[in-house]
Nucleic acid binder design. Structure first.
Lengths: 152, 152
DNA sequence: TCAAATAGTTAGATTAGTATAAAATTTTTA
DNA sequence: TAAAAATTTTATACTAATCTAACTATTTGA
C-alpha cells in the first residue's frame, strides 16, 4: 500500500527514485518537457509505476506535477538530478576513457554505481582522471600503452 | 510466497544473495564454520531471513545445508564468493589507499559497488592502482602530494 | 538425564517497487 | 464537434527481501 518512503539522511532517495529524477532532467534537456509516458519509456517501466513514483516525489518536494499534466523538477529535485548525472558522467568517463571499458558496459555500470558512491569519492575519481590525463598520459602513445597494459 | 528467484545470466545472483555467500566465506575463514545465527549477526538481519536465503541458495547449488546444521559453500558458491570478495578488496583499496577516502566510507561504498561492477572493470582498476603505485607514486612524498591534490 | 537456554524453522505480515486491468481525462482528427 | 485514439490515473496484485511470532530441534549443565 505505502509504496515509497522517506529516507535517512533527508534529501537522500533510493536508486529507483534517483533514476526518476535523473530521467526527468534528461528529458527536459532533450525536449523541454517530461510527460509520464516519456519517463516510462526511458526507464523501461509502465506508466502506473511512474505515476506512483511521481506522486511520492511531488509530496516530498522533488517535483511538481499537476494532474494529467507535465512533470517538472523543483530546485531540490534539480539539484539532486544534477548530482546524479554528474556522478554518472564522471564514472562513465573513468571507465570508458581511462580504463577502456566499452561504452555499453561502462554506461550500464555507471548507471548502477552512481547510486552507491558518494560525492567525495566520485570527485576524487574525477581529479585522478584529470591528473593522469594532464601529466602522465599526455600523448596518443602513452594512452595506447596504458590500454595495452590494462588489457594484457 | 516465492522469495528469491533465479536470474539471467545464470550463476548471477542479486546483491542480497551475493552478500550471503560473501558472509559465509568470511565466517568460514574466521571460524571454520558458518551457522545461521552467525550469518544473521554479520549481516544485521534476523535468522528467518537467513533461512529463506539459504534455502534458495541450497536449491540452486550455491551452498549445502542440512537441517539444523552448518552451512557450507559448494564449489560454485565458493567461486562466486571469492569473486565478490576480490571485487570488494580491490574497490576498498582503490578508494582508501589511492584516493584517501576514510576506511568506513570506503568499506561501505565497496560493499555496494561490488555488486554493480563487472570483473573486467574491477581488474582494470586493480591494474591501474598497481601501475600508479609502482611507477608514479613511489615514495612517501609523491603519495602525500597526491593526497593533497585530491583533497584541495 | 531432563529442564533451560539456545538455535533453527515455519507461517504469515510488511515494505519498496513494479505490473495488469480498467476507469477517467485529454488530445486528435474526420 | 463528437467519436476515436492516446495518455494518465486508480485499484489491485505480484515479487524480492525482510520482519515478528510461534513452534521445533539441539545443546548445555545442574
Amino acid at each position: 500500500m505505502a509504496k515509497f518512503k522517506k529516507r535517512e539522511p533527508l534529501n537522500s532517495l533510493s536508486a529507483s527514485l534517483e533514476n526518476y529524477l535523473e530521467t526527468i532532467a534528461m528529458l527536459k534537456k532533450e525536449k523541454e518537457y517530461a510527460r509520464i509516458r516519456d519517463i516510462a519509456k526511458a526507464l523501461n517501466v509502465k506508466s502506473p509505476s511512474v505515476n506512483t513514483a511521481i506522486k511520492f516525489l511531488a509530496k516530498n518536494n522533488f517535483v511538481i506535477h499537476e494532474k494529467y499534466g507535465y512533470v517538472d523538477l523543483t530546485y531540490l529535485g534539480k539539484t539532486l538530478a544534477l548530482e546524479v548525472q554528474k556522478k554518472h558522467d564522471i564514472l562513465y568517463n573513468f571507465l570508458n576513457k581511462l580504463l577502456f571499458v566499452n561504452n555499453k558496459v561502462a554506461n550500464q555500470e555507471a548507471c548502477e554505481i552512481e547510486h552507491s558512491i558518494g560525492l567525495e569519492s566520485v570527485r576524487k575519481i574525477e581529479k585522478l582522471h584529470l591528473l593522469l590525463k594532464k601529466y602522465f598520459f599526455k600523448n596518443e602513445e602513452d594512452v595506447l600503452s596504458l590500454k595495452n597494459y590494462l588489457e594484457e
